[in-house]
Nucleic acid binder design. Structure first.
Lengths: 218, 218
DNA sequence: TCCTTCTATCTTGTATACAAAATAACGCAT
DNA sequence: ATGCGTTATTTTGTATACAAGATAGAAGGA
């Protein structure tokens, strides 16, 4: 890893990774001095990094109190997923309008991988490729602002420790939804692509709720 | 105004106001030392403020180069307005589901003002009340994340020097759209409310493009 | 005259120092 | 012991100092 960018930027990226990787407890207070010492930098760039993460919603700064890792309640998921559904739906719509044969080839290849990882029950790789797939779609759509907003929300959602795909049967459903999406893309059927993507996201929310309910019971 | 919060926070608010109030030229470089001196603070809190504004998209930080006031091209508006249309449409949808009689009374009162200011050709007041109206609707919808995202985008849009409502005739159209929205809210017709709001936003984009074309010609 | 290159100056990025607020610790009274 | 008030300590917020990169300007050559 090359140390070219500013310490602030590096700190942002590292802390983001740590926060999203659950290296901190949700709600945990981040001690500036300790963190700075840990990262081997001074408090000045660290504080700038924390302000950025705060603007991203990954931490909350309470004046004179310190910085706390954000936590997402189930209620937040209820609010965020419908928004994501709209935004990602729109991506699918725009992507379907612009998709070229070579793009379809690339997406098909990704989808292929998805099927493979699903068959192998490799949830982590599935997640990874799934991310790349959605990212490729966003690039196709070519709407920078849409991309930006979705990126922000996606980061936020990763704060939630719940992984809906771990739920029984959900991975198969997810795969089926992806297949339907691919079919719509091949037909350049933007309306259907949008609808399928929307439902894909909303189904994730439903799965998450089901999972939370089960955890509650246990 | 009381100076209770941190200098960083104050700087954020002041600079935001200045940027949105077109006190800086779009693309203008912000000299840290000069700005800090102007605000009567040191560079430390100022830099934190700039990082926050950068995360909001109001400025762009180029490493080792400085901080520049963001500028919105017409292309950006083309991308942002459809997103806003979806988000505000969703607000209208959720608001229509939750609206209570007393809320309708309040919205009616605001709409009444809107009609009055339109009749008086008072563009600034119309703008102001229009903002309050949309805000009231957001509160009704009660989706904090939706509110947050719309707030961010709305700020961004204000970077654009274009103000569509100033276009002759557009105000009448805008008013008509508002009337249709109120009617849908009274009927608690969420789908229609969403559709009307979407079209309201998209019509604004069309008006902006018309205005830009006219400016181009002049 | 124009381009290049070296130098001087300016600006950003980072560390450190210090003040004020918040937290923790202690002693005291009940 | 428990609750309260005072003091000590930690921690945030801000200013300042300094180093390294970027910019501008001058000098020299084509």
């Amino acid at each position: 890893m090359i140390n070219k960018s500013s310490l602030c930027q590096q700190a942002v990226e590292l802390l983001r990774k740590r926060i999203l990787g659950q290296a901190f407890l949700p709600g945990q207070r981040l001690d500036e001095a300790a963190l700075a010492a840990d990262l081997g930098i001074s408090r000045t760039p660290l504080r700038e990094a924390l302000k950025i993460l705060s603007a991203e919603g990954l931490v909350h700064v309470k004046p004179r109190r310190g910085c706390f890792v954000a936590e997402l309640a189930l209620d937040d998921l209820d609010e965020i997923f419908p928004i994501m559904a709209m935004l990602e739906g729109r991506v699918a719509y725009e992507a379907a309008l612009k998709v070229r044969p070579e793009d379809l080839k690339r997406l098909d290849a990704l989808h292929e991988k998805l099927e493979k990882h699903a068959a192998a029950r490799d949830v982590d790789r599935y997640y990874e490729v799934n991310y790349v797939f959605h990212d490729a779609l966003q690039e196709l759509a070519g709407n920078r602002w849409l991309q930006h907003m979705i990126g922000d929300l996606r980061k936020l959602l990763r704060l939630s420790r719940h992984r809906s795909l771990k739920l029984e049967g959900r991975q198969q459903e997810s795969l089926a939804e992806h297949r339907a999406l691919m079919a719509a893309l091949h037909r350049r059927d933007a309306e259907t692509a949008e609808e399928v993507m929307k439902n894909h996201l909303l189904a994730q929310l439903t799965a998450l709720r089901r999972m939370a309910a089960r955890q509650e019971a246990a």
